[in-house]
Design a protein around this nucleic acid. Structure first.
Lengths: 405, 405
DNA sequence: ATTTATTAATTCAATTTGATTTAATTAATA
DNA sequence: TATTAATTAAATCAAATTGAATTAATAAAT
């Protein structure tokens, strides 16, 4: 695994707490900064990287050389645009490495192998039925093995495995996979079995990372990705990093109250946002069973049929979601808000159409700072397989992101 | 000014965007890390700093020696507790430097000189009446001059001047100082006139920084400080840094909707939090004029007299604030929420008493992650002069904080 | 059309900075 | 006296910077 940037002895993050730093961390950071710059711009010459990073041309020459030797960067044809020596543009080598993303819920495991550019190479789907954590780990490691064999990718070329699990880990209940999963050390066990680094992430954060790495949030360091699943959560990007909060529960926006005295929620309060904006709320509104795997297809069909119950739900959900977004924008003043999740894209589009225009907020004030007044609520990636795609981007993000801004 | 840690040629922050890093930045970071560690623990020996920062003993020896030579750290008496050479505990030298904080609103300027430990050395208060920005800068620089002369502190020993201004800068309106202040480059002009670095900060952020540096948030890297002033705002500490958002409007929590269809707000929406929780809301509820400087004293008096209008306002405000706090906690999962601002401490205490217990949220769930279930809503510093104290801590924080966690 | 100047990208060699390593010193306790 | 903990001196090492050189293109001048 010569492509690893982080050295074994230096596994703490570049700067954490009041810890000091040294040359090794600095170099690691600079390598990541180079990769990150190239990713954001698709392709960059050494000279351009020099300007962007503020490092010396010599340093960049060395770092780019090293990354090229490792197979992470590839040079394109020299550009003879202006005077001077023609520059070679470097870009990410799509096949410089691979990553595996797995999406698990109580009825299904979906695994995908992607390359460095986020392109999907192979996918495996398997029905499960609330397995125990031990059985789950075995099932997942078998899926990983199959994925590698069928796609003919060597295990050493895989950066890691990302596992997306619904909701915050500290809360069990109907959003989870099954009994016993909350306390179980999934990452450690699956890592032992598979021989690969494993990172467990909640579905909202995983989807947000994918949006950041390969999607519309590619150039945003501060945005909110609202994940509409069975419940409602958000991935918060703050200073280029996922913000998790003290208990890993940051982004649990489903429990913002949008209707005082409204529908009762299992959290103990009334009128929580996710009681109105979620697949579960949609099923409730249109009278489909929430634990029926076919409900999603029925919902989509009824949308296509212009079913009035679906339309009414959309209208109400959009009204409530506007208030939730206002709370988030007032609090975090983000660059953008992406709406995505498990919804089929047609449904997400319909919700989006109902949602706009948003309520006036700090982000829409005219004549204030940079970027104000611009459209900032956008449709993010939304698909029933979004968490798997997201999970696959987690190991890549972890390996390459240069740390807080 | 030999006490400056940041070197002139290296004025960009330690890590920003995708920029690279080098030895100079690393050293700067390490110096800050040492100071920060000492501040958090009151006093530390070189050996303890070595363990905390993870740097080598030799490096710490060098850094501490340098900081001692600069007068920022002072050694205490050797401790002969255990075997081995007795260690000398180092602590911040309170008189290693000074900082000036200025609080300005439309009717008053309040300036305070504090030392490195946050102790107030001298204070000057001056009535003003909606001055033009140009006049304002002259008035402020004269106050700075007087402060230094009367307290006999040399200008070179002052790290900088913090200016606290109400509300977000991008919004004018009644919370501002006067016409023309929004676009005016206060910091640059006052810096030119006074010969000192000047940082302008909104009152909520300034108060949050004070809470972090010298108050109950001293060991918290992730907390929310809710500032109740004429309006309502919050300072967000995320990963040890103030989070400002894209337009500097992060923390504008006054415009979270807590009562759909409620009181109309100048932002264009209805039922915004600050229409219920703010001095202006209190004055409205008890029938005092909001632009009368004596209203605050009257409010305090009527609280002491058990006035039913005040009690009713407190009850309603607390109910609304609980919902606002729930939204913040659901979004950010903070370590703590401090309530403070311009309220006299008795009033703040009364509000706090009404506020508890909070609504159930991710931070109060039993049996989940670390720190859950603990009391986390606390009374922060609250006083009519809180912004000045806060402003004074801004330059110190800027000079000494080691950057994102 | 040929030559010369200019510019831009890149690299080589030497230098500098600052953290680490290794070993020594100091001052306490058991 | 042996041991232990704190600290420091000297040597070493890693990585970025500096300044000069090299390469290859276009632009301008002849």
């Amino acid at each position: 695994m010569t492509t690893r940037i982080s050295k074994p002895g230096q596994n703490r993050s570049f700067m954490q707490g009041v810890s000091g730093t040294n040359l090794g961390f600095a170099k690691e950071h600079n390598l990541r900064a180079v990769i990150d710059a190239v990713r954001r711009h698709d392709a960059l010459t050494r000279a351009e990287i020099t300007r962007i990073t503020g490092l010396s041309a010599q340093t960049i020459s060395n770092l780019v050389g090293e990354l090229e030797a490792r197979g992470l960067l590839v040079a394109g044809a020299p550009q003879k645009a202006k005077r001077g020596q023609p520059a070679r543009p470097y870009s990410l080598n799509p096949n410089g490495g691979y990553s595996i993303g797995i999406q698990v819920d109580y009825q299904m495991a979906l695994a995908t192998l992607v390359n460095l550019s986020g392109q999907e190479c192979h996918q495996i789907k398997k029905q499960i039925a609330r397995p125990s954590p031990n059985d789950g780990v075995i099932i997942l490691s078998e899926i990983i093995d199959r994925l590698l064999i069928e796609s003919d990718v060597a295990r050493e070329r895989v950066f890691g495995v990302g596992v997306a699990i619904p909701g915050p880990f500290c809360v069990s209940g109907p959003t989870g996979i099954g009994p016993g999963w909350v306390e179980f050390p999934v990452a450690e066990r699956l890592s032992e079995r598979s021989g690969l680094p494993v990172i467990v992430e909640n579905d909202a954060n995983a989807a947000a990372i994918a949006e950041r790495l390969h999607g519309a949030g590619r150039n945003n360091d501060n945005f909110i990705y609202i994940f509409i699943g069975m419940g409602l959560g958000a991935g918060l990007f703050i200073n280029g990093q996922i913000y998790r909060g003290l208990r890993g529960a940051a982004g649990e926006i489903g429990h913002i109250i949008v209707e005082p005295g409204g529908k009762i929620c299992e959290c103990g309060n009334r009128g929580c946002l996710e009681r109105y904006v979620s697949l579960r709320a949609a099923y409730e509104a249109i009278g489909e069973a929430e634990d029926d795997p076919d409900s999603l297809a029925k919902l989509e069909q009824r949308l296509n049929d212009n079913d009035p119950a679906v339309k009414a739900w959309l209208k109400d959900a959009a009204e409530k979601l506007r208030m939730g977004i206002l709370a988030l924008e007032s609090t975090l003043d983000p660059e953008a808000v992406f709406i995505g999740g498990l919804l089929p894209s047609k449904l997400a589009e319909a919700l989006m159409a109902e949602l706009l225009p948003p309520l006036p907020s700090v982000t829409t004030l005219q004549g204030s700072g940079q970027g104000s007044g611009e459209p900032h609520i956008q449709l993010g990636r939304s698909a029933p397989s979004a968490p798997a795609q997201g999970a696959a981007s987690v190991p890549i993000f972890n390996e390459f992101n240069p740390g807080p801004t």
